Simulated scan of single mutants.
Amino acid sequence: MAEKTMKDLLRPPGDSDGSGRSLLVGPEAGLLAVLDAYEALAHAGAEQTWEAFTAAYDWTSPVERALPAPDAAGLLPTATPYDTGRLVSGRWELPGGDRQDRRWLTLPVPPAAGTADPSPAWLFAVPAEALLRYGTRVPTADGFTMEVVDFYVPAGLSRPAAAPGNRVVTAEFVGVGVAAMALGATRRMAALIGDRAAEEELAGLLTNVRKALRQVLGARARWVTTSHGAASWERDLGVALKRVEAVARHAMAVAYGASSESFGAGEGTGTGDGGNEEAKPLALWSASLLQNLRFSADLLPEDRLPDPDIQRNSSA
């Protein structure tokens, strides 16, 4: 993608490229258009597309938000960079207490430790089950707060709260948009293999799950006329998104391994140091997309898949 186009992509929400059309496709365009647009954009630049998307749309908005609470020393929660994510520590009041019927919660973290400013600097989407399992209930006069220490949250489940756009969006829009980005980024990675047969095999897998997702999206108008039909369609969408996530995760791992091996041998246009200058950052940003895709798909009414990025907390 041309440099000018990428700069235009990162304009504040509502700006355009001078042609009168927004470069960031919103929910009003329809889910099929969202799929096509974000796949193409991520194929050209996964990092820039994800950053622009997460800045424009509050993808945590479909999830209940906890309220930061001071600890025994009067300090509010903190988030410390660790690996590619952050370690979150502190106390929060949970909406509705320890209800068992929710899958995810959003944990806001204020801008600085030791301040009384309650406005969040970061928003973290965390599995409610993991929070209740690894957190500690701290009794209060009104009930309890939930405390966690060094609870790891990967980059794909973290969002700056002070982003220029905080548009509320649905789980369907987030899921389709992120699935599209994952498909585009994975197709880009597959092209770096340097092996035409392997590239075509992975492209075939991606094409199949993309076609299945498009079929579900195309059937939306026929199903959502009744509450029963809408629920059935949402389940189908959840299945389709999780299939995209599983296939994209597999294809990304295969493509990155193959490209690193090929370029490490000095083939193609790589660096010859065991990796490729484009493949390494692309794999990193794609990991964030896949983390978020599992989150957004999990918001739909379908059986959950365990998130391996959260398993680190089991040793806390």
Rank of each mutant, 00 (worst) to 15 (best):
E3W: 11
K4H: 01
M6I: 14
K7N: 13
P12T: 15
D17A: 11
G20I: 05
G20P: 01
S22V: 05
V25M: 08
V25E: 08
A29N: 01
G30K: 07
G30N: 08
D36H: 09
D36M: 06
A37T: 10
A37F: 03
A40M: 01
A40C: 00
H43D: 14
T49K: 11
F53Q: 12
T54K: 11
A55C: 12
A55W: 11
T60Q: 03
L67S: 03
A69M: 15
P70Y: 04
L75D: 15
L87S: 06
V88K: 09
G90C: 13
L94P: 06
R102Q: 09
W104N: 07
L105P: 12
A113H: 12
A116W: 06
A116M: 10
A116E: 14
A116C: 07
S119W: 00
A121R: 06
A121K: 04
L123M: 02
F124E: 03
F124K: 01
E129D: 03
R133V: 05
V138T: 14
V138W: 10
A141R: 15
A141L: 15
F144R: 09
E147T: 08
V148A: 09
F151G: 10
F151V: 12
V153F: 05
A155E: 14
A163D: 05
G165H: 05
V169N: 10
A171I: 12
F173K: 01
G175T: 06
V178T: 01
A179M: 05
R188F: 02
M189Y: 00
A190P: 03
A190N: 04
D195G: 02
R196D: 11
E199D: 01
E200K: 03
E200Y: 00
L202Q: 08
T207I: 06
T207L: 11
Q215D: 15
V216Q: 05
L217Q: 07
A219M: 05
W223D: 04
W223K: 03
H228I: 11
A230Q: 10
D236P: 10
A240C: 01
A240W: 02
L241W: 02
R243E: 02
A246L: 10
R249L: 00
V254H: 03
A255W: 05
E261L: 15
S262D: 09
A265V: 04
E267Y: 10
D273G: 10
D273C: 08
G274R: 08
E277H: 07
A279G: 06
L284G: 06
L289K: 11
L290A: 05
Q291M: 09
D298E: 11
L300D: 02
P306G: 14
P308R: 09
I310P: 03
Q311A: 11
